[in-house]
Amino acid sequence: MNSIIISAISQGLLWAILAIGIHITYRILNISDLTSESAFALGGALVATCIVNGIPPLLATLIATLGGSLAGFVTGFLHTKLKIPSLLAGILSMTGLYSINLRIMGKANIPLNMDDTLLTNAADLLGFTRDRDATIVLGILVAIIIVLGLIWFFNTEFGFSIIATGSNDQMIRANGVNSNVTIIAGLMLSNGLIALSGALVSQYNGYADVGQGIGAIVVGLASVIIGEVIFKNKNFFITLIGIIIGSIIYRLIVALVINTDFISANDMRLFTAIIVAIAIAMTNLNFRKSKVKRS
């Protein structure tokens, strides 16, 4: 039982970065960006290919992150410059990236269990005998850096512009900001984080798989929504902490559900999709109810 909790916390921390990326597009930019699915796999593909080719894990992880940003740039370019609706632009990127990921990896799955990863490096550095313990330390460290970085970023002039673009692009253009630039920047930030998450999860799992991003957007949304349910406060810091805790809780639920007799690991995506659908429907229905009462 104890080890289930520890593993849920480790995985939750790594997947939380994905959820924070989803939050940036879904909640801040108001775009349902499907690039996320393939950007997560791209992170894994890049990090695994780099590591097996002898590139140091830290550098490999950075390359994976930049790769995700590039994917976000492509989606942003398709959407803003070529005027393709955002949902379709994301689908195009996702579909195209699947082939690119296979090209990068050369096969559908690359094992990493014989190689040094960021996690084994961290374990060596910290003197842990088990990588699992290092994962928690590393996960917390990465989470702190990301939370502080995002709080700083979204309080800059440029950060304000991105937030304003998401809620009212007419207003931000009328104030002299090119909303194409802010949308592209937001997508690059989001997908960079998602690829970073994919890279870390691959190193934790000990392999990269071309299919590892399938359902990632729903998993991320589930974490975002769990976080919002726990912390109703709209303060950005609390929101980010909520997402991280939401991600950990989601992993705990997964661990508990898989251990029951009637749901197997194969059913998890259906289970998650239903949970997210119910959660979003409930917030919408509550909203409608309170509206009726007021009038």
Partner: peptide, 11 residues
Amino acid sequence: RRGKIRTLRKG
């Protein structure tokens, strides 16, 4: 900041 370039300075 209408008409000015948005930087990474404090908003």
